[in-house]
């Protein structure tokens, strides 16, 4: 499929393929959005490059995708916005189910902090070098990762405790 890229996006893609020729796996478009899939181990370098050389200063969002039954099950997507050109680009990395670890980009964009925590909370993907990797929505006592496809919508009974209906008498 041939790509129809606007000039700024073309620049981005050219720059990436030039500097990280062995790290960029594929570039594709879907309904007008541009997705660049890169090797997981190079994400911090690529992020630094994109921020410093391509003006992707603003990190809009980070989210995970569960590619259930596929190889390299988890995908982490970085939603970047260039403030100079107004171009939006999505950078994707993939990781294995057994050892889902991705390097944290909090050193590049501090905004990634909470978004990465959310991905960890929902999918169980760990982020190396994250300053404060805790669950963000669910309590730490919860054992599961709810947005994984095998987790039932109604939850697992008893996985989160309900309050006791007799008043505290521990003191």
């Amino acid at each position: 499929m041939s790509l129809q890229l606007s000039d700024p996006l073309q620049n981005t893609v050219d720059g990436l393929t030039e500097n990280f020729s062995d790290k960029v796996i594929e570039v594709y478009q879907s309904t007008g959005d541009t997705f660049i899939r890169v090797e997981a181990d190079a994400i911090v370098e690529i992020a630094t490059y994109l921020r410093d050389k391509q003006h992707y200063v603003y990190l809009s969002d980070i989210f995970g995708i569960d590619r259930y039954t596929s190889e390299e099950r988890f995908e982490v997507v970085y939603n970047l916005l260039s403030l100079k050109t107004g171009a939006r680009v999505f950078v994707k990395v993939r990781c294995e189910e057994e050892d889902p670890v991705v390097d944290s980009v909090t050193s590049v964009w501090p905004a990634a902090g909470w978004n990465e925590r959310e991905v960890y909370d929902m999918f169980g993907v760990f982020f190396n070098n994250h300053p404060d990797l805790r669950r963000i929505f669910l309590p730490e006592d919860f054992q599961y990762f709810p947005l994984r496809k095998e987790f039932p919508l109604l939850g697992i009974p008893g996985s989160i405790e309900l309050p006791s209906t007799t008043p505290d008498n521990d003191q």
Partner: peptide, 18 residues
């Protein structure tokens, strides 16, 4: 803490680490 003990512990730990 009387509930979500692990959660509270990690939260205070993280406050500590900031």
């Amino acid at each position: 803490s009387t509930f979500f003990k692990e959660h509270q512990k990690k939260l205070y730990q993280s406050l500590e680490d900031k």
